[in-house]
């Protein structure tokens, strides 16, 4: 109502109308859905004090779990960045029978309940599964080892990379490549100098999304991990274990640490992205 009573005071500054209500709504919505629950985590953890949190985080078991969760998620996201972009490339540039169908398959890891994914992957990769039995001959154990965790995280992360890279790749016009070719660029030069710079920011976003999802993943990983303390125990499981002990502050301390680490990593990735855009 104030805007109507005093016309011209705010209106002149913005070219688009409705800035104040939309900003207000955005902040309210973000606060309600994201910030308040997260603040709750930090509030619970703060009951321990800095020394207490340090003690929880500094323990051998928590450190091992954090290392595993972030390490495996990074490997899985890297794998997805490489193979996901190849998949995206194929989908954008080539026509083949059943393309639509395969295209739909890509999104399945989004839709599948994670527990189902976990059980299916474990069935495949355990020593009497289809893939697991072959790998076992080669002396490679996947299910119930950290390797299994990477497999599950790669599975759930794939669509993030494909779906972020795909539209950007579609924008990179063939003309550009042809122009590069007529100007005497070799194929690898075209890929490195023309296509890669255009796709890189989207690829980084896809990597970040896949990574963030994998770090927090619980449902699918838990079935394939083996869950041995210090070896294959992921940080989210440790949180559950602490909840089971009614150690809410301890659980939230681990959760808050994961949040801070994830936030810092995502921030770094965003900055990196902004920097490459500017270049």
């Amino acid at each position: 109502m104030t805007a109507v009573d005093r016309p011209g005071r705010r209106r002149s500054r913005r070219t688009l109308p409705g800035f104040t209500p939309t900003l207000g709504f955005t902040l309210f919505y973000l606060g309600l859905i994201v910030l308040i629950p997260l603040a709750g985590v930090f509030f619970k953890a703060s009951g321990l004090g800095f020394a207490g949190i340090g003690q929880v985080i500094g323990s051998e078991r928590v450190l091992a779990a954090l290392r595993l969760s972030f390490g495996a998620a990074a490997i899985a996201a890297l794998l997805n960045a490489v193979f996901g972009s190849i998949v995206a490339w194929v989908f954008v540039r080539y026509e083949f029978p059943g393309k639509r169908l395969f295209d739909a398959f890509i999104d399945l890891p989004f839709a599948l309940p994670t527990a189902v994914a976990g059980i299916a992957l474990t069935a495949l990769y355990s020593e009497n599964g289809w893939i697991g039995s072959v790998l076992a001959h080669a002396g490679l154990k996947v299910a119930y080892t950290p390797l299994g965790i990477v497999v599950a995280m790669t599975f759930i992360g794939l669509p993030f990379v494909v779906r972020t890279v795909e539209p950007v790749l579609r924008e990179v016009e063939r003309d550009l490549e042809e122009a590069a070719a007529t100007l005497g660029a070799r194929r690898w030069q075209t890929v490195l100098r023309v296509i890669a710079p255009a796709v890189f920011p989207a690829l980084v976003t896809g990597f970040a999304l896949a990574f963030a999802r994998a770090v927090g993943e619980y449902g699918s990983v838990i079935f394939i991990a083996g869950n041995f303390p210090l070896v294959s125990e992921i940080a989210p499981l440790l949180i559950i274990i602490k909840l089971e002990e009614f150690d809410y502050p301890g659980a939230t301390a681990v959760a808050a640490t994961m949040l801070v680490l994830s936030f810092l990593l995502l921030l770094t990735i965003n900055l990196l992205q902004a920097w490459t855009r500017k270049k």
Partner: peptide, 12 residues
């Protein structure tokens, strides 16, 4: 060989 989180998982 594997520490499942619940009885159902262990049975599976």
């Amino acid at each position: 060989p594997v520490l499942d989180t619940g009885a159902r998982g262990a049975t599976t």
